[in-house]
Amino acid sequence: MARWTPDARSRLAKAALALYIERGFEQTTVAEIAGRAGLTERTFFRHFADKREVLFGGSAVLEAGLVAAVAEVPDGSPLEMMVAALETAGSFFVDDRRAWAGQRQGVIEANTSLMERELIKLRALGGALTGALVRRGVPESAAALATQVGLVVFWQAFGRWCRADHPADWGVTVRQVHAEVRAVVGAAPD
């Protein structure tokens, strides 16, 4: 096996996802993932803390990007700032990642412990986004509420975006879901 390959992380992620789909998450071992990728277990652990992190490794990058976006969006209501920040995540949710994201979500939804992990990561994202709004001068209770509504928009938009048949890009999807949320709660559209 090669000592170093420039695309090891990507190869490991692709191998892991394929095995999770074929065999199930619980039945797949790190040794099998590394073997499928043509790499060693040691190489796997250089890139991922455990086999769950193959599915959640991008969450830190997404969180950092959204927190930075909250700091930079124009002033507005807390929810308007949150939705504007969510729209900027379009660079994270690009079409060439859509199929992988949909398959990833299928694996997560088929496993209770992975769903729990997903919710923990979502909760951590919420805390970080609330903190970002508070640093912008939004009172904590308003920041927490705007974040919770923003996470509903995010979760619904992500579910739609990862479907292969969904034609809209990320920003359009976020705006559509936000408009639907506003209609459900009786607010007039922007």
Rank of each mutant, 00 (worst) to 15 (best):
F44D: 06
V94M: 09
S113D: 15
Q148T: 07
A71T: 02
L129M: 15
P74L: 01
R136W: 01
F154P: 05
E22F: 00
Y20Q: 06
A37C: 05
A49L: 12
Q176D: 13
E118A: 15
G58C: 06
H178P: 01
S10E: 09
A142V: 00
R182P: 01
A34P: 10
R36G: 00
G76N: 07
Q176E: 15
D50S: 11
L133S: 02
P74V: 00
V30T: 14
M1K: 09
G137D: 08
R46N: 11
L62Y: 13
A146L: 05
S77Q: 05
Y20D: 10
W100N: 04
V172W: 06
L62G: 09
V184I: 13
G186P: 03
T147N: 07
R23Y: 06
A110S: 15
F92M: 14
A187W: 12
L122W: 13
E140R: 14
T130R: 13
F92T: 15
F45E: 03
R42F: 08
T5N: 01
T29C: 07
G76S: 09
G90L: 06
P139S: 03
R3H: 11
V94I: 14
T173V: 10
L66I: 05
L114A: 08
A144E: 11
L17M: 13
V177H: 07
R97V: 10
G38F: 07
V30H: 10
D7S: 12
G90A: 05
T88R: 13
R182I: 00
R23S: 12
V134I: 15
E22G: 09
G126D: 04
E80A: 15
W170I: 10
D50Y: 04
G57I: 11
L79N: 01
E118C: 04
T40A: 06
A71H: 01
T43C: 09
G126A: 08
S141R: 09
F154T: 12
I21T: 13
E32V: 01
L119M: 12
F154M: 11
A128Q: 06
G58H: 14
G159F: 04
V153H: 02
A85L: 04
R135P: 02
W161C: 08
R136G: 05
A144L: 15
G24D: 00
A187M: 14
T88G: 04
